Amino acid sequence: MTIAEDTTGSSRRFNLAAWLSRYGTLLAFLLLIAFNVVATPNFLSLQTLNVNLTQVATIVIVAVGMTLVIATGGIDLSVGSLMAIAGALAPMILMGAIAPTTDPLVVLPLAFIVPLVVAGLLGWFNGFLVTHYSIQPIVATLVLFTAGRGIAQVMTNGNLQVFKNPPFQFVALGHVFGIPTQVLIMIVVVAAAAFLIKGTALGRQILAVGGNEKAARLSGIPAKRVKRFVYVISGVLAGLAGLIVVARNSASDANLVGLGMELDAIAAVAVGGTLLTGGRANIIGTLLGACVIQLVRYTLLANGVPDAAALVVKAALIVVAVYIQQSADRT
């Protein structure tokens, strides 16, 4: 083999790895759609579209917050537990267990505001542990991953909270111009995060901190403040997803709300092309990654494959996505 031939081969490998890193998620998404159009009955029905969109909405919302955290070089394992806490607080407020009044004009706003504020404060706590005590993010967020669900269980005494409040549940069960409300919320969250990253100085600071924190600090970027900010956003979005889940189910179960969501969110980020080492944030990629994960699960279930198999496929997708990212970076 000549030097010229070797150089050409390396160039081809580089081009393939880079192309897959950039467009692989979209390709997988399109292939899944094509397979289901051919092999899955009623895949093109509005009911199927509605089911998949509503199932993926909460994953996307949480995964967007996870993307911002990972972009700074962090990780947030507490999102599922924060969903459980927010999901426990809202019904308690609606049913008068916390609020001093049952006036709907007071209780309804509180049922949204209080859980989101609490989730944001707990997200700030994660960021505080990471920045003030220099605790590794995976360890810092493991605190609330473990304790957070316990807090939610203590709040509810481990009991299922069944409730009915149509104005509150509109956030999950309502439609605007025929589009599910939770899907519209998902779109707004994705659009806002994409604008944050691409169109603001704060977005550039987030990427700078994740790319090289020391250099970012030397250039005047308040790295600690930026890190705390992304953990707060991750907490708020996890809380929002928790509200949507309990509103959709008309019940809150602290044992189940948000269970495993941290893994789905990290998987969506990885499959979507965001580097798990930080310095990059592909918000649209995260959206596509979540859609791929949801479609994989739907495809397997619709074709008679046990749900447990989806976990294996999800793990394989993460491995492949990380391998492609590393291959693209090495070339």
Rank of each mutant, 00 (worst) to 15 (best):
M155T: 13
M155H: 06
M155E: 08
M155Q: 03
T156V: 07
T156S: 10
N157M: 12
N157Q: 08
G158E: 11
G158N: 03
N159S: 12
L160S: 11
Q161I: 15
Q161T: 13
Q161W: 06
Q161A: 13
V162R: 15
K164I: 15
K164D: 05
N165D: 15
N165P: 10
P166L: 15
P166F: 12
P167A: 09
P167L: 02
F168Q: 00
F168K: 07
F168E: 06
Q169D: 11
Q169G: 09
F170T: 05
F170R: 08
V171L: 14
V171K: 02
L173K: 11
L173Q: 08
L173D: 06
G174S: 14
G174Y: 09
G174F: 06
H175T: 08
H175N: 14
H175M: 12
V176R: 08
V176W: 12
F177D: 12
G178H: 12
G178Q: 02
G178R: 05
I179V: 13
P180N: 11
P180M: 07
T181W: 03
Q182W: 08
Q182S: 10
V183Q: 02
V183E: 02
L184V: 13
I185A: 04
I185L: 14
M186S: 07
M186V: 04
V188F: 13
V190L: 04
V190P: 00
V190E: 02
V190R: 03
A191E: 06
A191H: 12
A192L: 14
A193G: 02
A193N: 02
A193H: 00
A193Q: 01
F195E: 10
F195L: 07
F195S: 11
L196N: 01
I197D: 04
I197E: 01
I197S: 06
K198Y: 05
G199A: 13
G199P: 01
G199M: 14
T200I: 07
A201V: 12
G203A: 11
R204A: 09
Q205F: 15
I206L: 09
L207R: 04
L207D: 07
L207W: 02
L207C: 07
L207P: 00
V209P: 03
V209A: 05
G210Q: 04
G210C: 04
G210W: 07
G210D: 04
G211D: 08
G211Q: 02
N212S: 13
N212G: 10
N212Y: 11
E213C: 09
A216I: 05
R217C: 11
R217S: 11
L218S: 13
S219P: 15
S219N: 12
I221Y: 02
I221N: 02
I221D: 04
P222C: 15
P222M: 09
P222I: 10
A223P: 01
A223I: 00
K224Q: 13
R225P: 07
R225G: 12
V226H: 03
K227D: 07
R228Q: 12
R228T: 10
F229W: 11
V230A: 06
Y231K: 05
Y231A: 14
Y231F: 10
Y231S: 01
Y231C: 08
I233G: 00
S234N: 07
G235L: 02
G235W: 00
V236W: 04
V236Y: 01
V236F: 04
V236M: 09
L237A: 05
L237V: 13
